[in-house]
């Protein structure tokens, strides 16, 4: 029935690249992402609170960044993939007006466990690395 395909383990190899995706970091995405993740810390919705920390505007909360990165991985894999972990090093803030480009590459395929490691990078066009690390997905063996 499904229009959705999920990559099988056999279809994935180390070195496979994920198509890069650009995310427009808007005030809407920052503020609404904070609310959708129930993160009411003022720095994510109140510009004056963000200015007081030395940043020029409200900035994206970590839960939104994690959500965008897992979405990026499963948009590539398809919906039957099971997310096992997301391990991120945090870098420069994402502030409205920036564009964050996400890119990724398969760095390991474990045929015993069915888990693939994807090295991922989210980089904004102003300050560079916003988040970088690994998403692990378990893929089905057969489609």
């Amino acid at each position: 029935m499904s229009d959705y395909r999920t990559l099988t383990l056999a279809e994935v190899s180390v070195g496979d690249k994920l198509e890069p995706v650009d995310i427009d970091v808007t005030t809407g995405l920052v503020v609404c992402g904070a609310l959708a993740t129930r993160d009411f810390e003022p720095v994510h919705h109140d510009k004056s609170a963000a200015l007081a920390t030395g940043l020029p505007d409200v900035f994206m909360n970590i839960l939104t960044s994690q959500g965008l990165m897992t979405r990026y991985a499963t948009d590539w894999s398809g919906p039957e993939a099971v997310v096992r972990s997301i391990d991120l090093k945090l870098g420069a803030p994402n502030v409205p007006g920036m564009v964050m480009t996400m890119s990724g590459e398969v760095s390991a395929v474990d045929s015993d466990s069915g888990v693939v490691d994807i090295n991922v990078l989210g980089e904004n066009n102003i300050w560079g690395m916003h988040m970088q690390g690994t998403v692990q997905l378990a893929l089905p063996r057969e489609g």
Binding site: M1, G33, A36, G67, R71, D75, P79, E80
Partner: peptide, 24 residues
């Protein structure tokens, strides 16, 4: 659904009951 809407998430594993019922 609210989370998916903001994150731009369209994964039917989170959103589509009919699809999910037939999924693994």
């Amino acid at each position: 659904r609210h989370w998916c809407e903001v994150l731009g998430e369209t994964n039917p594993a989170y959103l589509d009951q009919d699809w999910a019922a037939d999924s693994a």
